[in-house]
Amino acid sequence: MRRVLLIGSGEVGAKHATALLSTEGMILVGVADPSPVVAPPAGVPTYARWETALEVLDPDVVVVATPPGTALRAARAAARRGASVLVEKPVTLDPAELSPVPVDQLIFVAFQPHFAPGVPQLLAETPAARRAEVRLVCRRDRSYYRSWRTRYATAGGILHQQAIHGVALALRLLPSSPVSSCTAQVYRVRRWAESEDRISATTLFDNGTVLTVDARVDSVDEPRCHELTLHLEDGRRLHVRGQNLEAGLGDPSAAPADLELRRAMYQALPTPDGEGPRHPSLFHLAQLGRTLEVIAHAYRTAHTAPQAGPAA
């Protein structure tokens, strides 16, 4: 039985707590958060400081579900104690902060949609691809933009918070290459936060591959989706579907629930000794650097597009 510490008890932390309590081979031994937004599960010890929780509990696994300003520091502290660590995206907004340190090999980023049907096999085989298209449609209401999410400097934009699951998956499947150019437009109408309501970006890489992203969080009428279309060199197209990619390459009507994907993600975490093969869907912290660099490039080159619409 692996002993798990959860750092962070907000909206996302609560989802992790629920999933961890029902994951075979895992036992939630503590929750650390100075001001829990969601009450930790009954009977689970709570700590105001994650440093104290690490010292007292000495967990085997640590799940970090805190804002970017804290996440990387907490994840690396847990890894230094020998724990296997799973940290929520975006971890940090600054790619430079991901300059590798030895403990990073124990840290993985929480992308449960990468465990969707067919996606592990796709990542293991990495077929030759020349273009990837990410599309995100959802709605985030005013209540979502509170505290740290209000400001771009602490939360980032749509590409950091919502579309990163698909962007990261696309970049894992496209051959790695430096960015040659990027064009992007952001749309701000509601102004509930410094982040945008929609972004459209096209990134070209030196090897000729292309990544396009169209992501919006202000939709009213469109069906919710977060999908990836991969254009292969042989002319085929692969579609990873779902409200959050959860259907993978399979039938959307038979897509696994978020809870099931989270359990698979936890159980794939290697032990600190690293014995056995790594699960292809695990997203190493080191791999996040390229994703954040591409996202940063898009926002650096983005122009604000005028758009009629209500201010609130």
Rank of each mutant, 00 (worst) to 15 (best):
Ala308Arg: 14
Leu5Glu: 01
Pro223Tyr: 04
Gly13Gln: 00
Leu28His: 01
Val38Tyr: 09
Pro102Met: 00
Leu20Asn: 03
Arg81Tyr: 02
Gly309Phe: 00
Leu57Ile: 12
Val109Asn: 06
Val119Pro: 05
Leu106Met: 01
Asp218Ile: 08
Arg262Ile: 03
Arg76Gln: 09
Thr154Pro: 08
Leu288Arg: 04
Pro178Asp: 09
Trp192Asn: 11
Ser281Ala: 15
Pro175Ile: 10
Glu11Ala: 15
Thr46His: 06
His226Ala: 10
Leu285Gln: 00
Tyr145Arg: 09
Ala215Val: 02
Asp258Leu: 14
Asn244Ile: 13
His165Ile: 11
Val179Gln: 04
Leu174Asp: 10
Pro45Phe: 12
Arg198Glu: 10
Arg76Phe: 02
Gly250Pro: 03
His165Val: 12
Tyr47His: 15
His239Met: 06
Glu260Phe: 05
Ala75Gln: 00
Tyr299Ile: 06
Cys138Leu: 15
His284Cys: 13
Val31Leu: 07
Val213Asp: 13
Ala128Asp: 09
Glu293Asp: 12
Leu136Asn: 02
Arg76Pro: 02
Ser99Gly: 09
Ile199Trp: 03
Ala124Pro: 06
Gly8Lys: 05
Leu288Lys: 04
Leu245Ala: 01
Ala264Thr: 13
Val4Pro: 07
Asp197Glu: 05
Asp141Ile: 13
Leu21Asp: 01
Ala96Gly: 09
Val134Gly: 05
Ala163Arg: 04
Gly43Cys: 13
Val294Arg: 10
Ser253His: 15
Gln287Phe: 03
Pro280Thr: 10
Arg237Tyr: 00
Ile164Ser: 07
Glu227Asp: 10
Leu292Asn: 12
Met1Lys: 11
Val31Met: 03
Ser35Ile: 09
Leu106Tyr: 05
Val44Asp: 02
Pro127Ile: 01
Pro223Ala: 05
Val119Phe: 01
Gly25Trp: 02
Gln267Ala: 14
Pro41Thr: 07
His231Cys: 11
Val240Gln: 03
Arg263Ser: 13
Thr154Ala: 12
Asp221Glu: 14
Gly157Gln: 08
Ile164Phe: 10
Leu159His: 02
Leu72Met: 06
Val91Pro: 01
Ser177Asp: 09
Asp58His: 13
Met1Arg: 03
Met26Val: 02
Gly276Gln: 02
Ala71Pro: 02
Ala255Thr: 07
Arg191Tyr: 09
Arg216Thr: 15
Arg262Asp: 10
Phe108His: 12
Tyr299Thr: 08
Leu171Phe: 08
Ser9Arg: 10
Leu6Lys: 06
Asp206His: 15
Leu228Lys: 08
Gly82Phe: 07
Asn244Pro: 00
Arg262His: 13
Thr183Asp: 15
Ala39His: 13
Ile199Asp: 00
Pro252Arg: 01
Ala75Val: 01
Arg262Met: 15
Ser84Trp: 00
Ser200His: 13
Pro256Val: 04
Arg76Tyr: 01
Gly309Val: 08
Gly156Lys: 08
Val240Ala: 08
Ala128Cys: 01
Thr150Pro: 02
Leu173Lys: 08
Thr291Pro: 13
Leu28Pro: 00
Met26Pro: 04
His297Lys: 15
His303Gly: 12
Arg140Trp: 15
Ala39Cys: 12
Tyr299Leu: 04
Trp192Glu: 04
Leu245Val: 06
Leu98Cys: 03
Ser84Tyr: 05
Ala79Cys: 09
Pro175Asp: 08
Pro59Gly: 01
Trp192Cys: 12
Gly289Trp: 04
Asn244Met: 14
Leu232Arg: 11
Phe115Arg: 09
Gln112Ser: 15
Asp60Val: 05
Val87Gln: 04
